[in-house]
Simulated assay, not measured.
Amino acid sequence: MRKAVSAIVWMVLATSLAGCAFVNVPLVPPPQPLEEQVLEGKGRKKILMLDISGTISELEKSGGLLGRATPSMVSMIRESLQKAEQDKDLAGVILRINSPGGTVTASDIIHHDIGVFRQRTHLPVKACIMSTGASGGYYIAAAADEIVAHPTAIVGSIGVIMMKFNVEGLMGKIGIEEQTVKSGDKKDIMSPFRRATPEEVRLGQEIIDQLYGRFLEVIMARPGNKLSRDELVKLADGRIYTARQALEARLIDRTGYLDDVIADLKTTIGDQDARVVSYYRPGNYKGSIYAGSEAKEGLAEVFGGGVDLLSNSRFMYLWRP
């Protein structure tokens, strides 16, 4: 009897499998569109909280062996602004900044996108610097109508830096020799396998000076700027400032907490019970206005990660203590 039952079970399984199509279920689900999450408030109007957190980069962050890659900060901000522009209930935006800066291009793209958003929507945009708003982080803050910094925030580091490694001595010690065939003597400029020549340093400095000039122009053009160019140049030597020092230097408009910025924006839009919202991808829950951001590119990701860290010299709006 037991053998007969077993035979019937196997026949049923065989028949079922013969008529089934196998479904390919990916181990890592594809990224989902951004969704809105209410952090506080119940009013009709909305205030969007946008995170500028971590090192600013146009490169996506690797998800490892089984995880999925995280979109770059540039991509995340562009997608968020496009979604926000379609929301008729949106009444204002807060840039929650906690960043030492990052690449020149990523900082500039985000600054540009925020400026375009302001022009198209005519909505108020305020920047709130939390712990750090240095270099590229401050560059992005300059796109806002007003810059507010927490009393304990670090602000400034206005300038440009390019870093490179010189591993020539190390390679000689372990018996490795690098040989490059090139079309011109500047083709391998800033190579990590030799010391830079004085002319290469001069050429690099010329580029840095132009990018530095652009940084100054961005600050001069910010809505709340009260500095002359000469006054700004004296402040923009790469140093960092406390929030109080930055206020006295007129690099920021005032000091305060994130709650203060939210309250002021609610008054501006005329809705004291306005909803404070953020955007997230399914699986990335945020429980309050102080919840962490989704993507935090590290310095290794900015340079390309891994071994590429030795072979990439990039121009940075970055404070790197």
Score class of each variant (00 low, 15 high):
I269A: 01
Y290R: 09
V277L: 06
I289N: 03
A295K: 14
N284W: 07
P282M: 08
S293T: 12
K266S: 02
Q272L: 09
G270F: 02
Q272W: 08
I289M: 08
V277W: 00
K286D: 05
E294Q: 15
G283C: 03
Y279N: 05
D271G: 03
Y279W: 14
Y290N: 13
G283R: 07
A291G: 08
K286Q: 12
N284M: 04
D271I: 13
T268S: 10
V277R: 05
I269V: 01
G292W: 03
S293W: 03
R275M: 07
E294F: 15
D271A: 06
I269Q: 07
G283H: 05
T268G: 06
A274F: 10
S293F: 04
I269K: 10
I289R: 00
P282Q: 03
R281G: 01
I289C: 04
Y285G: 01
Y280I: 15
Y280E: 04
I289H: 05
Y290I: 15
Q272R: 12
S288D: 10
D273E: 14
G283Q: 02
D271F: 13
Q272S: 11
S293V: 07
V277M: 02
Y279F: 13
G270W: 07
K286T: 15
K286W: 07
G292V: 08
K286Y: 10
R281Y: 01
G283P: 01
A274S: 13
Y290L: 14
I269D: 02
R281I: 06
G270E: 13
N284Q: 11
N284T: 10
Y279I: 08
A274E: 08
G270Y: 09
G283T: 00
T268F: 07
G292E: 06
R275I: 03
S278I: 12
Y279E: 08
P282L: 07
Y290W: 14
A274L: 05
T267F: 08
Y290H: 11
E294W: 10
A291V: 07
Q272E: 09
R281F: 00
T268R: 13
D271V: 08
D273Y: 10
D271Y: 06
A274C: 11
A295T: 15
N284A: 06
I269G: 02
D273M: 11
T267L: 12
Q272V: 12
S278C: 12
I269R: 05
Y285F: 11
V277E: 02
I269P: 02
S293Q: 08
V277T: 01
Y285S: 10
Y280M: 15
Y290S: 13
T267Y: 12
N284H: 10
T268A: 13
P282D: 00
A291T: 04
I289K: 04
G270C: 08
S278M: 09
A274K: 04
N284K: 13
N284Y: 05
G292P: 02
T268W: 06
G287A: 14
T267K: 15
Q272Y: 06
A291D: 00
I289S: 01
S288K: 01
K286P: 06
P282T: 02
Y279R: 06
V276S: 00
